[in-house]
């Protein structure tokens, strides 16, 4: 049997590609998260987590909704897009078995410790960072639900010790997500240059 292999293309390096579903997830996550963030700061201002009524307020240009009721409208609308987006993506990652290949594993941890290859180390760090954000995304939904429905979901809100702890845990998501957006983008640039970022959005 003679093999009829197509001639090897050796010229241009293969550009990174992403599945359409991964792109949809990224867009929906980014937009809904920023709506959650700005409307969340509006809600924050009604009674600051730190300091209560005499606490420091975020400036108006960082808030969405105009006042508390408007902020809540945006927040409790965007939560559906944010949470359901994460849910279907989680199912997709499970069913397609992407979790076996696309997320941080023991070999990444090992590479970070022992590898002499800078590229491999960057890649491992990139995977580790974007894997670590997933539990944070889930935690912000859990803490949000616990505050939104503390009576119906009493079992959930009781996991957060008390109300102030619950509010603090939910609020901490804001600096974490902002920091993550920067670090994740920088690491993606270092690992795959602008091509990698472009591949995830267009």
């Amino acid at each position: 049997m003679t093999s009829a292999r197509p001639p090897k293309r050796t010229k241009s390096p293969r550009l990174p590609t992403q599945t359409l579903l991964a792109k949809i997830f990224h867009w929906t996550n980014l937009i809904s998260l920023f709506v959650m963030l700005f409307s969340g700061l509006q809600i924050y201002n009604a009674n600051p987590v730190f300091g209560g009524r005499s606490g420091w307020n975020f400036p108006d240009y960082l808030t969405l909704g105009g006042w508390l009721a408007g902020g809540r409208n945006w927040h409790f609308a965007a939560m559906w897009f944010y949470a359901l987006n994460l849910l279907w993506y989680g199912l997709y990652v499970m069913i397609s078995r992407r979790w076996q290949k696309r997320y941080a594993s023991g070999s990444d941890l090992k590479a970070l410790r022992v590898s002499q290859n800078a590229k491999r180390k960057n890649y491992a760090l990139h995977r580790l960072v974007y894997t670590a954000i997933i539990p944070i995304l889930v935690l912000s939904i859990a803490s949000g639900l616990a505050m939104y429905k503390p009576a119906s979901l009493h079992w959930l809100s009781s996991l957060f010790v008390d109300w102030q702890t619950l509010r603090t845990v939910h609020f901490i998501a804001v600096p974490i997500f902002i920091l993550f957006t920067f670090v994740h983008s920088l690491l993606a640039l270092r690992v795959g240059s602008i091509h990698l970022i472009k591949s995830m959005f267009v």
Partner: peptide
């Protein structure tokens, strides 16, 4: 568009009207 709406209540009423039936049914 998003930035312009920050600090104002632009659309917040409409957003509430659109999503409140779903939120209420869930509650």
């Amino acid at each position: 568009l998003l930035l312009n709406s920050c600090g104002s209540n632009l659309w917040s009423k409409e957003v509430g009207q659109a999503i409140e039936p779903l939120n209420q049914a869930t509650q």
